[in-house]
């Protein structure tokens, strides 16, 4: 199974009702797979809105996931810190993490490389996936834990999984 299919299947296993997202090139096939599987997706104007919309969905009994690039999660720090965490509004986030192995663009480095530590500072659990093998299970288990503990959970996808641009070579 491709890593994209692993993610789509993991989200289906987790019975995710809504995926809020701002497009990332690397996640194109995931988005397509979600459309084929009839999972509702919502494109937002800014990733902070993806977190807020996922939070709003929780009060209706839905389980929402957020998909974005690491810079997008950085855009959403205040929503996570002043809504998701203190109001205990859970979401699963799937974040393509730039700024580490293979990164050519220095503008992606400070936030992308630093986000796991930033999540730690805010008390948000996360895992960095660098091998696609168990991705389906990881996505499912991250979602299950987020919604049963009523806290957010972030799955970072490293460039070893998603591939990377070799512009600088």
């Amino acid at each position: 199974m491709s890593w994209e299919a692993e993610i789509v299947n993991g989200l289906l296993d987790a019975e995710i009702d809504l995926v809020t997202q701002l497009p990332d090139g690397a996640m194109g096939a995931v988005l397509e797979g979600l459309h084929e599987a009839d999972v509702d997706t919502l494109r937002v104007e800014r990733e902070e809105s993806a977190i807020a919309a996922a939070s709003g969905a929780w009060v209706t009994g839905e389980r929402a996931a957020v998909m974005c690039q690491s810079s997008g999660l950085a855009n959403a720090i205040n929503a996570i810190g002043s809504l998701s965490v203190p109001a205990r509004l859970p979401f699963l986030a799937l974040v393509t993490r730039r700024g580490d192995l293979g990164e050519f663009n220095i503008a992606q480095v400070p936030a992308g490389y630093g986000l796991p530590a930033m999540m730690d500072e805010m008390g948000v659990r996360h895992t960095v996936v660098s091998e696609p093998g168990a991705l389906r299970k990881t996505v499912r288990m991250a979602a299950d834990s987020a919604f049963s503990t009523r806290t957010p959970y972030v799955v970072f996808l490293d460039a070893t999984v998603t591939g990377y641009g070799q512009e600088a070579q």
Binding site: D17, L18, T20, D40, L42, V44, E48, S49, A50, I51, A52, A53, A54, S55, G56, A57, W58, V59, T60, G61, E62, A64, N78, A79, G81, S82, L83, P86, A87
Partner: peptide
Amino acid sequence: FYLWGSMGSTTATGVGVAHGT
């Protein structure tokens, strides 16, 4: 659904609620 924080995210929170009800 009173918010105590997240200035700028009030409307998007409503969008999420409206999706599920």
